[in-house]
Design a protein around this nucleic acid. Structure first.
Lengths: 240, 240
DNA sequence: CGCAGCCTTGATCAAAGTCAATAGACGTGG
DNA sequence: CCACGTCTATTGACTTTGATCAAGGCTGCG
């Protein structure tokens, strides 16, 4: 509960006491942001790096026809791209979902941290690679998974991420994401998502209700999602 | 035609003569790779950084049910993630599409380049941000664009990328991508892609045939794709 | 010449979207 | 404390999009 950003980076590489102190200092003046507030908008000049210490946020894009695509969920401990300042303008927006505690680290300070503290730099790069892996998983989901698989896969992802950072250690997780928001992240309509959630509920795999995800049958959920997709592939590889 | 990787980085930030010399040295021993050869497979321990100097390649993932999702196209000048070596194993595979000229830069050499040559580091980071932006555009396409918009959008992307690196300066582009491969990148069936391509051909926007993309009516193609999605959004922003 | 790998087209089917109505949940102010 | 408005969730009826199945047709190459 101290500083979820530091906790998360700890998981990605060893941090010295000095590293921790530097990170603590860099995120020592977070501000409270209400829910549904844009932190930065598509087209804006990128500013400081945002770090979400508490609460949830998302990256999203609005299309010309008015529809929205959510590109990623940021949970406590997540930060947005380090090098974002190198680009002329944002290609997407970032918005809080719930009230959140957000720290900002300005570019020069971030650059210094990365330069002087290899431990921090390494952990940040790993975090970025993990985020990229998540994006690839999303592309895969959207392209080649059915809607029920896609929903199950996202729930697996969110649950595991939450568990990794200690947001929960039970089969239940507080998930403050409306069906509309989830639908916009999964590339489907809220109506259809609602039906899929019902199907998952009836199957006994998981229950998503009143802001809470209950993973009722982890094995079943993972099986529906095809979450273990590496396994088969790795075994085939030896033959090739 | 000299070294497309260096040409591309030039576009992303100023490079000194020493930077160029260092890059030239690092990519001076490329090897020829046949088409349809995996450079690295999902589950493998990441090795050196790959740089595609000539020819085309793609990132992809195979799902448990045997379907494939293409995650990105690599054209001449493109490299795979710098920090990939930090991860324990690849979460996707990379395969050549055509015969290709591929340089490998091993991790220590890459680290040195990034450390000692800020110009190179900056250009590489910008390249990576651009790649991430492309992934976000793909997620957006898959989630919220119809199949014809999606196809048109991908063609805009590929054409512009090709133009940026000097692969073409005409409305035509040699595109050695089979309909099957394109379908696997767009999350649709080859049959449906074929019909969409016909529709685009009949509409006069573009013609994709015999390994060649002809952008017959750029305005129309951009309009179908909704490629200028920023414009509307930026104007709305002022009111908010 | 004949095979293999694409590409093309038609007919049919299933998945997901759209439209519409109703029901809960929740916060606000009287 | 209740009435009201707003936002979110749920369900039904119907439509559309894209997938599936199946049959040729090109093209390049050994």
């Amino acid at each position: 509960m101290e500083n979820r950003f530091i906790d998360k980076l700890h998981g990605f590489g060893p941090l010295s006491d000095e590293d921790v102190a530097a990170l603590k200092a860099a995120t020592s003046k977070p501000r409270n942001v209400a829910g549904r507030r844009d932190l930065i908008r598509e087209g804006d000049r990128p500013g400081p790096v945002f770090v979400v210490l508490e609460g949830w946020a998302c990256r999203y894009k609005i299309l010309p026809n008015g529809t929205r695509q959510v590109l990623a969920f940021l949970m406590p401990g997540d930060a947005c791209d380090l090098h974002i300042g190198l680009l002329a303008e944002m290609d997407h927006s970032i918005q809080t979902i719930t009230p959140a505690l957000v720290a900002t680290i300005d570019r020069t300070e971030m650059d210094e941290l990365m330069d002087r503290r290899p431990g921090i730099a390494k952990a940040m790069y790993v975090a970025q690679l993990v985020d990229e892996g998540t994006m690839r998983a999303w592309i895969t989901s959207m392209g080649r998974r059915t809607s029920i698989e896609r929903v199950a896969h996202l729930m697996c992802e969110l649950y595991l991420r939450a568990r990794n950072i200690g947001l929960t250690d039970e089969p239940e997780l507080a998930l403050p994401l409306s069906q509309l928001l989830l639908a916009d992240s999964l590339g489907m309509t809220p109506v259809h998502l609602n039906r899929v959630l019902k199907e998952l509920r009836v199957s006994g795999a998981m229950i998503l209700q009143r802001g809470s995800l209950l993973v009722a049958d982890p094995g079943k959920l993972v099986q529906i999602a095809g979450f273990d997709e590496n396994y088969l592939h790795r075994r085939l590889r030896r033959a090739a």
